[in-house]
Design a protein around this nucleic acid. Structure first.
Lengths: 107, 107
DNA sequence: GGGATCGATAACCCTGTGGCTATTGATTGA
DNA sequence: TCAATCAATAGCCACAGGGTTATCGATCCC
């Protein structure tokens, strides 16, 4: 059972790949060449990372002549925020349970 | 430069390890034995995962006799929520720039 | 047309790491 | 005291995946 969280966490766990995504969030649409120039790795490596990001839905591409422009798809991050919220909820509900238990013991 | 985001994403990217952390969030403190029983992997594998989670600050351990109890440290997730918020902010600020540009062009 | 550039793909290598079994150390309890 | 249980560690293996170079297809421009 490989869910959306799996894909997102795994995709963003690589520092080089996450740096590429961060750049797209900061500076908007970028060509592969521009991304390669400041990535510290080769162009094929960047293309591979962009492929992974695209499969995760985190970026989309737009072809224009011989260059390809990539841009961040921020909506794809929502399962991540959902997950952290859920963890917080679980934790909070356990705290509530403890609280009510203590209240009952107090009576 | 390996920052807090690296550690968190990397730690949570493994499904087995994340499942262990989720269980600790849901059900609170658990022994290694209990976690092993429903993890689908061997006890040494679980111990290794717990070691990684502990080094990331995501869990803490409490020794009691020959068993070790682990519990989630939810505060350790904050760099993750910070990061997603930051990405949203970057994206939003670019949107604002575009908006103001269009406003200026409109006049 | 033909050289140059851009980006994707192929083919390969090598490290990191998640899994296992075996073992050890510590604690429990009969 | 001694067997049994719990969890950590050691040592090993197998594979995923991130890196490289080489190449190809397509587009641009001279």
């Amino acid at each position: 059972m490989t869910n959306a969280h799996d894909v997102l966490f795994r995709t963003l766990s690589d520092p080089t790949r996450r740096a590429i995504f961060e750049r797209l969030c900061r500076q908007g649409e970028q060509t592969v060449g521009a991304l390669t120039a400041q990535s510290g790795v080769s162009q094929p490596a960047v293309s591979k990372h962009l492929g992974v990001l695209r499969q995760a839905g985190l970026v989309r591409d737009r072809h224009q002549g011989r260059q390809t422009h990539y841009s961040a798809q921020l909506a794809a991050l929502s399962p991540l925020t959902d997950w952290t919220n859920q963890m917080n909820t679980f934790w909070q509900s356990r705290f509530d349970d403890l609280e009510s238990l203590l209240k009952r013991m107090d009576q």
